[in-house]
C-alpha cells in the first residue's frame, strides 16, 4: 500500500493553547481510518491543519508526495483533498443542485457551469437527494444538509476525504443510511478519514483507528487493539475507571 497523506511532527498552537502536539501519522491509499478522541482533543484542528484552514505552526504535511503544509486551502482542494464540516457549511441561498455544482465547478479547472450542474445531478442521486435538487439549501433538514455536504465533497473528485462527524445529530435510521454511503465510497476506492463519536459506526466501517487526546496521538492500530488500550480507556473514562478495569481484567 502506498502512502497518500503523511504528517510529520505536526503541531498547532493557538496562543497559549497547544491544540496539536507533535502528531505523526501516515494514511495509506484505500484505507478507512476512524479518528476519535474526547471533546477538545484536536480532531477538527487536525483536519484544519491538513487543509491549511489553520496551517501547522510546526511540522510538515505531505499529500501524494507533495508538501502542502502551507498550500492555500483552495489549492489543496484542487489537488483532491476534500472534507465535510462538522457544522454544515452550505451555500444557504443556492439550491441543493447549485451547491454541489459549485464544488464541481471550482475544484476542476476549466469546468463549465453547465457540465458542473450535470455532474452535480449524479452526486445528488448518489446521496439520495435528487428529489430535493431544486430546493434551497437553507430549507433542507439537518440530515439532508449532511448528505448535501457529502455530495459536495464527492463532486470535488477527492482522493482523500475527511468526514467530520457526518453522523452527529442524526437519528439511527439516518445514521444507518449514512454508514451505507460511506461503505460504498470506501468500496469505490476513496481513502477516508472520519471523525466520529459513534463507536458502532467506527467499528463497522474503519479498518484502523487513531486516537487523539489533548492534542497528542495516543493510539494507532487495529480497532480491537485500540479499544482495549489502557491509555485510550483512561482518556475517555478517567484514570480511576481505567485502573478498575485493569484490576478486573
Amino acid at each position: 500500500m502506498s502512502e497518500i497523506l503523511q504528517l510529520q511532527s505536526v503541531s498547532r498552537r493557538f496562543g497559549g493553547l497547544q491544540a496539536l502536539r507533535d502528531v505523526s501519522l501516515t494514511v495509506n491509499k484505500g484505507e478507512v481510518i476512524g479518528l476519535i478522541g474526547p471533546n477538545g482533543a484536536g480532531k477538527t484542528t487536525l483536519v484544519n491543519v491538513v487543509t491549511a484552514v489553520t496551517p501547522a505552526t510546526a511540522g510538515t504535511v505531505k499529500f501524494d508526495g507533495q508538501d502542502i503544509t502551507r498550500v492555500k486551502t483552495y489549492r489543496s482542494a484542487r489537488l483532491g483533498l476534500s472534507r465535510t464540516f462538522q457544522i454544515v457549511q452550505p451555500f444557504a441561498q443556492f439550491s441543493a443542485l447549485d451547491n454541489v455544482a459549485a464544488a464541481a465547478l471550482f475544484s476542476q479547472p476549466g469546468e463549465s457551469l453547465k457540465a458542473a450542474r450535470e455532474e452535480a445531478r449524479r452526486h445528488l442521486a448518489f446521496v439520495g437527494l435528487e428529489a430535493q435538487s431544486g430546493q434551497q439549501a437553507a430549507t433542507l433538514t439537518l440530515a439532508m444538509r449532511k448528505r448535501l455536504e457529502l455530495a459536495k465533497a464527492l463532486a470535488m473528485r477527492p482522493k482523500l476525504l475527511f468526514l467530520d462527524e457526518v453522523n452527529a445529530g442524526l437519528n439511527s435510521a439516518e445514521v444507518e443510511r449514512a454508514t451505507a454511503l460511506i461503505h460504498q465510497l470506501a468500496a469505490d476506492g476513496i481513502t477516508i478519514v472520519m471523525i466520529e463519536h459513534l463507536m458502532k459506526v467506527v467499528l463497522n466501517v474503519c479498518s484502523r483507528i487513531v486516537v487523539l487526546h489533548n492534542g497528542q496521538l495516543i493510539a494507532d492500530g487495529q480497532p480491537r487493539d485500540v479499544m482495549t488500550n489502557p491509555a485510550v480507556i483512561e482518556a475517555y473514562l478517567g484514570q480511576q475507571y481505567a485502573q478498575r478495569i485493569g484490576a478486573h481484567g
Binding site: Y74, Q89, P90, F91, A103, F106, S112
Partner: peptide
Amino acid sequence: MSKLGFGMSCIMQNETAANMVGLNT
C-alpha cells in the same frame, strides 16, 4: 450569468465553504 458571478455568490453566502471547494476567493 458567468462562472465569475456564480463564484461571487458563493463567497457572499459562505466564504469558508467557497474556499474549501477550490474557489480562489
